[in-house]
Amino acid sequence: MHRSSRESIFMLLMGSFLVIYILWPLVGLFVRADWDLVVSSARDREVTGAIWRSIWTAAVSTGIIAFFGTPLAYFLARKDFRGKAFLEAIIDVPIMIPHTVAGIAVLMAFSPKAPLGSLLVKIGLSPVNSHLGIILACMFVSIPFYVDAVRDGFYGVSPRVEKAARTLGASFPQVFFRISLPLARKGIVSGLIMSWARGVSEFGAVVMMAYHPMVAPTLIYDRFATFGLKYSTPVAVQLIIVCLGMFLVLRLVSAGKRREDMNND
């Protein structure tokens, strides 16, 4: 056997431990689930409503993060300044702190007694136990996943390409939208997927801000606490099917694009 093949097999065998570690519990969940209950819960409006709520609130929070986070990611990729490392560390804080703590922090910031929360209440928005509360919690935990991925995407775009474009008569916004954004698309797609996936799967922060209306992870916990494992598993299986489906579609789209790019090299 060729030496490089042996090395590859060794690496694969070592790495397969982690792949199995991911797949084993998930496959077990599907194998051990009561499929009659899975099918019947698919018609349960509380279940479908919670899953749909998870999907769209995560999408809205990702949209807001993308709107504000893309310029921030570009700024971080293009500028070197004193305190940059500190700013990047602040952006990554939500990854490092426990999500229940994140939830408490967001709750304290947006509770009706806090200045921000009272401001929202004054304009007719309820930041606690509402869809807005879910979105605020999702945003807090998803920001680093989006900003980091998009910043890395912009790092991959040569500043010289942008500069050359400016000398051809394009203004900064024209270069940003026509050159920088399309060239950073891999990072942006990756950031969108990661941010959305983080939002959909968030429980700790969301449950602090809004136990009701329930998102899927809260409903799974609620069913587990009230009825036990047997009745929480069908909801978990459905959430996994929906999320993995969307995740796979998005990954395949971006992988297809990447393959196309590699063929051009």
């Binding site: 040569s158 010289r160 390409v161 500069k163 050359a164 474009a165 400016r166 000398t167 051809l168 008569g169 394009a170 203004s171 900064f172 050159i179 399309p182 060239l183």
Partner: peptide, 28 residues
Amino acid sequence: PPEKRNVALVYQDYALFPHMSVLHNIEW
């Protein structure tokens, strides 16, 4: 600003737009 100077710059590493065809690069 650079776009108002009518001064074009060609870099050593070409700085072409990789997401466009040659024709679209030239016409951009």
